[in-house]
Computed example of a mutant assay.
Amino acid sequence: MTSRHLVLQTDFGLCDGAVSAMYGVALSVDPNLKIFDLTHEIPQYNIWEGSYRLYQTISYWPKETVFVSVVDPGVGTERLSVVAKTVDNQYIITPNNGTLTHVLQNIGIIELREIDETINRLPNSGESYTFHGRDIYAYTGARLAANVISFEEVGRKLNVKEIVELANPEPTVENGLVSGNIDILDVRFGNLWTNISRDLFIQSNVEYGDLLEVTIENNERQVYKNAMTYGRSFADSRLGEPLIYVNSVDKLGVAINQGSFAKAYHIGTGMNWKITIRKAINTAYNDVND
Results as ranks from 00 to 15, higher is better:
K279A: 00
V223W: 02
V70M: 14
D135C: 03
I182W: 05
N282A: 01
V154D: 03
A138M: 05
L100I: 14
D236T: 13
G231V: 15
A84Q: 14
F151L: 10
S59M: 13
G108D: 15
L112P: 02
I202G: 00
Q203T: 02
S20L: 09
K225W: 01
R134T: 04
F151N: 07
Y129N: 11
G231T: 15
M1E: 14
L38N: 11
F189S: 01
P95R: 12
L100N: 10
Y285P: 00
D11K: 10
L200K: 02
R188P: 00
S51M: 06
N96S: 15
S59N: 13
L6F: 13
G50I: 15
S233L: 10
N226E: 13
E241K: 06
Y129T: 03
K161F: 12
Y230K: 01
V223K: 02
S59R: 11
S128Q: 08
E165W: 04
N32K: 05
N257A: 08
V87F: 07
I244T: 07
H5A: 09
L100A: 13
E170F: 11
D37C: 13
I115T: 04
R4S: 14
L122R: 10
V66H: 06
V148S: 08
A264T: 08
I107S: 05
A142N: 06
G253V: 06
G270F: 06
V173I: 08
V19G: 10
V254S: 02
G108T: 14
V87S: 05
S81D: 15
H40N: 08
K161H: 12
T86L: 10
R238N: 09
V246D: 05
L192A: 07
V25F: 04
N181S: 06
S28V: 06
H266F: 05
G259A: 06
R113P: 04
S260K: 01
Q258W: 10
G13H: 14
C15S: 09
S81F: 12
V19T: 12
A235L: 15
V178F: 01
D250R: 11
L54H: 08
Q105C: 06
R198D: 09
E207P: 00
E49H: 07
A138I: 03
T10P: 11
I163V: 15
D88T: 13
Q258Y: 09
F261M: 14
N32G: 12
S51R: 03
S179L: 04
S3L: 08
S69T: 15
D186R: 03
T229M: 03
A18N: 09
I110W: 09
D11M: 15
N147A: 09
W193T: 01
